[in-house]
Design a binder for these strands. Structure first.
Lengths: 348, 348
DNA sequence: GCTCAAATTGACCCCGGTGTCAATTTTTCG
DNA sequence: CGAAAAATTGACACCGGGGTCAATTTGAGC
């Protein structure tokens, strides 16, 4: 059915014996086209399987039909989920998706993102954490008139679109679970200090413990970098201590898995001798033994929402300009790393 | 430095007091521009940070400056590696990358890919296995005049561009390793029968065993689907047998990890009681305990090559039309799942 | 059947680039 | 110095769409 030569609106117009403007009206479902014309044009379109050139439309309409996900990627699965979520929405809407990884720690990172967006006239950008936490970036994006939605870890007080998972609630749920299992000596492997998400999870964790009447001494908090390797190092440090914790909560799965590997190397049985909880529900969490208890953040759904919002906004939806502020409740996923009640854990 | 309003070639021409054609010459580094003009135009370009509109160029040049990776994704890490490899090349060359996942088992999958490529006038497509194995797809792509390079698991006799990892060599290396460790009862978890890659790994495995004077009875070959879950099921079947194997080779990491999880659930110690080898060197292979012995396929390098080739071809490089047929040697990566010499493994 | 308003259609220009080719300027050289 | 050749520059059309507005057709009302 496809011809090798892609034909243009002019070809279609000629074949149908009408002006190109009429063809344009038909493809765009504009009103005021007589049924006769419509049928004539539509049949040519169908026969030759004509689709209008995205580049030409982009040039004429000053929009690109391009959405982009901008991310600084320590966490591949988060990004992958986001990608599939966005694609789910983009495809049927006639939008394409461009993934834009970056190294956000570089000094000119924001410049590069801005140049990228304005160069391609990207219609909308979905910002993933930690890129989404930058106020400078969002204000620069506003400056150039680029739509964006932020995916965040926690509600922010800004006035700009955001979709966030309620980390606090998830952390509470996790702490309750650990306490119910009888744990009292719970350590934290937290994320980097320049990450809002990490700071907020840390705060939520500490206050959750406090509510349970538990302490969080300094030697029970290890500072990680959200990476597997840092999980290993933090766990070594935590588990070497004289009175080692009976449970570790890592503020992402990567680090939790690093901790588990460390524990296993040391010969500790999980969960019997050490209980571990992560945060993310990455694919690996369910593909290991024992499988990791964690929190699923519904990144995919969040990104679908973000893409919908952006596309609606581009299409000039009346109320699409309204501020977006959606909260998504993470789901607690219990697996084998928290399968066994705490033991007294008297160790050397 | 960036103005909110992106200016066009006409603006630059006006500001520099020259014709737009001259500006065009400068941006494209065309010869026959006097130094005086060049300086005048360049300074305006620099001052206003002008970049030509990709959409307009696309329309005029009939190319999109878009590359795409088309894949049917059972294996997220393979795809991710490919993505980063391609981006590495695309970015500096001024190309953008569009990821195009698809469900290749659907009847109209090829139509959709063709429509995608011709609609967006994609300049070049990188096909990942198993999509890359389809002769119909490659011939359709040729029909519409779309450049492509295939990433394959093994050399193919076709006349079309391919970059492949020499699976046979890697499988040999793995088998030698297992035999050196003293294993004689080696089982295979193979991939699906409609996958050339899987069939070839199977064949390579069997002939490697044969060379070592070893048998591969039917009850030592489990048919998996390249997924974690199928790895679990295959391992259950293999390990339930009366005389269970001392080593399992899975033809991808996903299934190998499924096998490991199964063994661990059954209480088998790895590698002491069961040795396991995978194939892919996925991120998880090195993020578990014991870490998985496997083969690294250098997907990233392969994809970089593919992207380079495609871009060269688009740019009208004289010898870029030449057929590409690159072999990449996988690297054997020994980790803890093959750390211990085979024991006699006398089991119930 | 006629008038006037409403609906339909199309001519023409623009979007922001590039290619062609003619016009202009600079060089070369007798 | 003058003519021809070479180098440089720009006018204009085109890529494939959409917007504007005038021209044409259709329909309503009498």
């Amino acid at each position: 059915m496809d011809r090798a030569e892609k034909l243009s609106i002019n070809d279609v117009a000629r074949l149908a014996g009408v002006s190109k403007k009429t063809v344009s009206r038909v493809i765009n479902n504009e009103p005021n086209v007589s049924p006769k014309m419509l049928k004539k044009v539509q049949s040519v379109i169908d026969e030759y399987n004509y689709t209008p050139s995205p580049q030409a439309r982009a040039l004429s309409l000053r929009r690109s039909f391009l959405l982009s996900i901008v991310h600084d990627n320590p966490n591949a699965s988060y990004v992958t989920e986001a990608m599939y979520g966005a694609l789910e929405i983009c495809r049927p809407a006639g939008y394409e998706l461009i993934m834009h990884p970056c190294d956000f720690s570089k000094p000119n990172a924001i410049d590069r993102i801005i140049r990228f967006a304005s160069h391609l006239k990207i219609d909308g950008v979905i910002l993933l954490p930690p890129v989404s936490e930058s106020v400078e970036l969002t204000s620069r994006l506003k400056e150039i008139g680029c739509n964006f939605v932020r995916l965040l870890s926690t509600k922010s007080e800004d006035e700009v679109h955001m979709i966030y998972h309620n980390d606090g609630a998830a952390v509470n749920r996790i702490v309750s679970h650990l306490v119910e299992l009888g744990h009292r000596e719970i350590a934290l492997i937290r994320g980097p200090e320049n990450s809002q998400a990490a700071n907020q999870r840390f705060a939520a964790f500490r206050s959750a413990l406090k509510n349970k009447g538990l302490e969080l001494p300094k030697n029970r908090v290890a500072l990680g970098g959200n990476t597997f390797q840092s999980g290993i190092e933090c766990a070594e440090w935590l588990l070497m201590s004289k009175h080692r914790p009976t449970a570790i909560f890592a503020s992402n799965d990567e680090m939790a898995i690093g901790a588990i590997v460390t524990a296993q190397k040391m010969g500790l049985k999980i969960p019997a001798e050490l209980t571990v909880v992560g945060f993310d529900d990455s694919p690996q969490a369910s593909r290991m033994w024992p499988a990791l208890t964690t929190a699923n953040l519904h990144v995919r759904e969040m990104t679908e929402l973000a893409a919908q919002k952006l596309i609606a906004q581009c299409s000039g939806d009346i109320d699409a300009a309204a501020q977006v502020r959606v909260e998504v409740e993470p789901t607690f996923v219990q697996r084998q790393t928290t399968d066994v009640p705490a033991t007294s854990a008297e160790n050397a």
